[in-house]
Write a protein that binds this DNA or RNA. Structure first.
Lengths: 112, 112
DNA sequence: TTCGGACTTGCAGAAATCTTCATCTGTTCC
DNA sequence: GGAACAGATGAAGATTTCTGCAAGTCCGAA
């Protein structure tokens, strides 16, 4: 194997392993959005958001295109939503009640 | 939020973001196994494997128990299998053909 | 009760990741 | 052309993660 498969998988999961990147993906589940919007919802510096978006782009998880003065981002595949959903289920199973996070989790629809 | 939910999610994904840890989880999908077996299949030093197992344990993704002289590990929830499967699907969608990994991916049942 | 196998833990240097600052490109509007 | 907004990129210091080695614990057999 040139780049072992399990290493590619690990890289993909590591790509998701950042709070800002997770939030971006959750926001993009509802459809393409301009960086502008993401920035308004995520409380992070513009340059930092750009860095995180670049990570997601390099991994092929999101795609971007320009729409006039704005740059739009979108999930490259809707399968990402499944991954996030599966993650949510595991979190529910794993957090018996650490810090009351479980309660939050249960009351959440698909964002957060 | 004490520990924001999206941060807990990010931590969970980051926990999966390591080749050895991915391999461990894939092996555990078929049922509990002793460290001994994992070590025989994963080509990593014993102490390194132990470290990675500790990471998975701390995250609550696997559990361990002693069976005589051996220590057994198991997935803490079968939902983990869903997560790995979702990851595999995304990899398939994302790797149009980088390094021919796509071919490997297609010929794989559930391990690798 | 001592030996060897099966793991785990502590630790330190090496490597990767994060965050922020400064700078740079592209677009719209005047 | 020039100002102002929307983003991206490069680089550096701080932090985190990884790896391997040395040492330690626990168990079964002799």
């Amino acid at each position: 194997m040139s780049v072992p498969l399990y290493q590619a998988k690990a890289e993909m999961f590591r790509t998701l392993g950042h709070p800002v990147r997770i939030r971006v993906l959750e926001l993009l589940q509802d459809g393409p959005r301009p960086v502008r919007d993401l920035l308004a919802e995520i409380d992070v510096e513009a340059s930092n958001l750009s860095q995180q978006l670049a990570v997601l782009r390099r991994a092929g998880i999101v795609t971007s295109f320009r729409d006039g003065a704005l740059v739009m981002y979108a999930l490259s595949t809707p399968d990402v939503a499944d991954l996030l959903a599966a993650g949510r289920r595991i979190l529910g199973a794993v957090l018996t009640d650490r810090d009351g996070l479980l309660v939050e989790l249960r009351s959440q629809k698909s964002s957060g």
